[in-house]
Write a protein that binds this DNA or RNA. Structure first.
Lengths: 188, 188, 188, 188
DNA sequence: AATGAATGAGAATTCATTCAT
DNA sequence: AATGAATGAATTCTCATTCAT
């Protein structure tokens, strides 16, 4: 549903993946302002190849963001199906923050994600999956009943970005999250 | 100690202030990537004047960050001296988040502040003042005794950035902060 | 003599024709600077196919020009054989201008045609046919005896291009040509 | 009225003139598609200087066209004031064609001039001056009374372009124009 | 032979920074 | 000191052409 364009030739699909992987690395390392040339170089392809697959730099960033969101949504879905309801939300939260701390692009990307219709669908899916996790956590008594989805999203985003920009180490991540988790507990 | 350069001529000092004020506005509105020309235009001076006062764009950004930090530190100092110890921390937290939500530059700036020796002094002052506020809050029984300064700083930064990038409205700011404040409360 | 290459496979010949037809449309519409991709798209073939038939874009343009010239030459030949000698030249003139007014490529093409040996043969044929038409017009007393071929060619080219670039409507075409035709009349 | 922007600094005005002069040469020689770099090189300035004076290539082309039109208009005005009414129009016609024959840019430029509001004023002035010349020629009995301005403009443009694209030599220019002039004579 | 992906040399434009006025 | 023009490297994007499938 996301990429129903004509099936790419094998080599083209391979290169598209290479570019996307390179983009993830490079953007993670240097932020969304690195030149497309850097991405091409990291991918080991010519600049034209990047632009063939993603006609503008924006497109590339969007595609990357879509993929990141899709990956997170998948993790959420797994947790909804298999995780312990009482801890699944906290687990996901923790994991996401750890990942964000290593990815400089996410911040730049998320900044525009909200107003970008082209990723809206992925955002919706993601939020939907998170909503389910939140509901389960409430049912399991791990989260106060009046906590709303947008608050959780806001905290998640904020902490993720904070972890990245502030270069928090693992310990600081844990302690900071502990405070937030306490704030979410029932009877708080 | 940071700016012990020779005393500026009156008009030069005036221009320096104009540039800094313009920079704050423009960077707040468009982020750290606007051109220096925009800053000059807003300040009503020629581009050369900006570069005379701040030899590189980095310098200008750093000076701006220093000033912002100094201003916050001043607010903190006032709160330490005059505020109600039980709520002063929360008050400051709330105010800072509201301000950040309107200032696009802070995020870009803070991203590098950590690793920048040139603003280290201001950062230290700021942290020192915040530490005092935290201590008082603990003494007043408003914050759990084992909460550490770096956790508070981390949360503060994260929420501020989150508020900005996520364009949180006032209501969402309040609710999100409420969770964090609950997490900081004793007996949590 | 121009295309004595090996006889093409049936499908190849078909494709060559498709490309040439597409090129005529596309170049007529957008001028000689459209990308070869546009031509391929219009022809419904892949870009590689275009380049297999015409190894460079220049070749394609030349081939197109050759064809256009051949077509005009054919029209001239018909007029020489069948037309009323007293008006055939004016008729052709009028028709060509009307066609040019709808074809943006011709101008760009003709600009280089002169110095291009590869189309010289077609140019010669064309001029030869036009010369015959001119002779007949003189014999019929419709054109002054001292009018030379290069003058007629020059006027023909100029008016054609003018009509195209100036987007003359049919009325303006007619009136402008009337002046030229008057200038060609005997006793002028 | 054309450039009432703030008076440029002496060196800036000098450079602007250098760029415009270089543009005229280079565009005349290679057509409107040469790179702006070529213009900069010919002018002996850096590429940035060209773009400071003319923010886009289009602007540069427009400025050039405006200047060319202004120059022609001036010539026309002089002829109206001083020339022999019976021959002034033919004289101007002849001169313009000769100049066009050496200027490859004019064609590309004129192609868009029609639809460009930014040169509309210059075009109007030019047409106005030409109209006066035409009126005088009619009064002097050198041109048929029913010849209209748009026909003259059309012929002028067409022949100019033809002379350029066809690389007509002086003799051919003369003979071709003679035909047109004959067509314009009264009693034709 | 056809396909369409990859290449890489430009081209226009921007912008931090320098320097003559 | 201020001005604002000049510089030129960097960036995004295009497109003719080549080449693997």
């Amino acid at each position: 549903m996301t990429d129903q364009a004509k099936p790419l030739r094998a080599d083209a699909r391979r290169n598209r993946a290479k570019v996307l992987a390179a983009a993830e690395q490079v953007f993670a390392e240097f932020g969304a302002s690195v030149s497309t040339e850097q991405v091409a170089a990291r991918a080991g392809v010519a600049i034209g190849t990047v632009f063939r697959h993603f006609p503008t730099k924006q497109e590339l960033l969007r595609a990357l963001l879509r993929e990141l969101l899709a990956r997170r949504t998948e993790e959420l879905t797994t947790l909804v199906a298999e995780g312990d309801p009482a801890t699944a939300l906290f687990e996901f939260f923790t994991r996401l923050v750890a990942e964000a701390a290593a990815n400089k692009a996410v911040v730049d990307l998320l900044a525009e994600a909200g107003m970008d219709v082209q990723v809206a669908e992925q955002v919706r899916s993601f939020q939907h999956a998170l909503a389910q996790l939140l509901d389960r956590a409430k049912l399991a008594g791990a989260v106060r009943a009046d906590v709303r989805l947008d608050e959780v999203l806001a905290l998640l985003g904020a902490i993720s970005q904070g972890a990245l920009l502030g270069s928090w180490d693992r310990d600081l991540q844990t302690r900071t999250l502990a405070i937030v988790f306490t704030g979410l507990l029932p009877g708080g």
